[in-house]
């Protein structure tokens, strides 16, 4: 199966990717490589298609009625939209964190254990315990919640909830973690913690993050892709995009002329 590629090779590769919602086309011929072991930020004004692109990678768009995808999108060279691809298996490999923290109305422990349970990742209870603890630890939440693992996940603060959702996602041991504006519902302190966490997670996971905040993109990502009206306008190293954009549209956006 797949090997962990050296940093810089394409983990996810899209070529001429079109997405339609019913009559409306949301993405126009996107060519984009997501490199392994990096944080890639997708930026652009709202409705530009960045979230759509993100949701193609783990086929969350399948849940939308009338959504249609054309072009090619591959994960480790395998077509994500191939008929033989199993969505469940794909999502075990490609985890996701959502805009609004959405912990299940269950205990903190059960929230994190849910993924490993359904995928049968743990042979016994102690192994499951270990997965839960490690995941919480990696998400930087263990210290705060270790005494109340049986309390409801919905009782945590917003920032804690979002880190719980991250812990829940990485407990499945995905290769890629998709983050759809993970900090938009959080206050600045919680945001800082999550951003710190994203930076740490980079060691083990390939991360794609959609964000509204250019500062955030600049802080956490190594590469940045700029979308506008369903088209990928420019992609490059984050530093280059923010200091020396090649396209006038990109420049206009990052300097705040529109957005």
């Amino acid at each position: 199966m797949n090997m962990v590629q050296p940093q810089g090779t394409a983990k996810v590769r899209s070529r001429g990717l079109d997405v339609f919602y019913g009559e409306k086309q949301a993405l126009f011929g996107v060519d984009l490589d997501i490199r392994a072991g990096e944080v890639t930020a997708l930026i652009g004004p709202s409705g530009c298609g960045k979230s759509t692109f993100l949701r193609c990678i783990n086929r969350m768009n399948d849940l939308v009625d009338g959504a249609r995808v054309a072009g090619s999108l591959t994960l480790d060279g395998d077509d994500i939209y191939d008929r033989s691809v199993d969505v469940v298996q794909l999502r075990a490999k490609v985890g996701m964190v959502f805009q609004k923290p959405n912990p299940f109305p269950k205990s903190i422990y059960d929230n994190v254990a849910y993924g490993p349970r359904i995928h049968g990742k743990a042979a016994d209870q102690s192994e499951l315990d270990e997965i839960v603890m490690t995941s919480l630890e990696k998400a930087g939440l263990l210290k705060e919640v270790k005494d109340r693992l049986q309390e409801s996940g919905t009782g945590l603060s917003g920032g804690q909830q979002q880190r719980l959702c991250i812990a829940r996602a990485i407990a499945v041991e995905p290769e890629i973690v998709l983050m759809d504006e993970p900090c938009s519902a959080l206050d600045p302190i919680a945001t800082a913690k999550v951003e710190e966490l994203i930076d740490e997670l980079r060691e083990n996971y390939t991360i794609v993050i959609v964000t509204h905040s250019m500062q955030q993109a600049a802080r956490v990502s190594q590469r940045t892709a700029f979308f506008h009206l369903g088209k990928l306008i420019e992609v490059g190293d984050t530093e280059q995009i923010f200091t020396n954009p090649q396209e006038p549209l990109t420049q206009g956006y990052i300097t705040g002329r529109f957005g």
Partner: peptide
């Protein structure tokens, strides 16, 4: 039941029936 909860489960790779039985129905 909010859509975000379903997405949370699907995002972890749960099947539809698992999502319904373990997330939607308890909620």
């Amino acid at each position: 039941v909010p859509h975000s909860l379903r997405e949370g489960a699907y995002g972890l790779g749960a099947t539809k029936s698992e999502t319904i039985k373990q997330v939607v129905l308890p909620a």
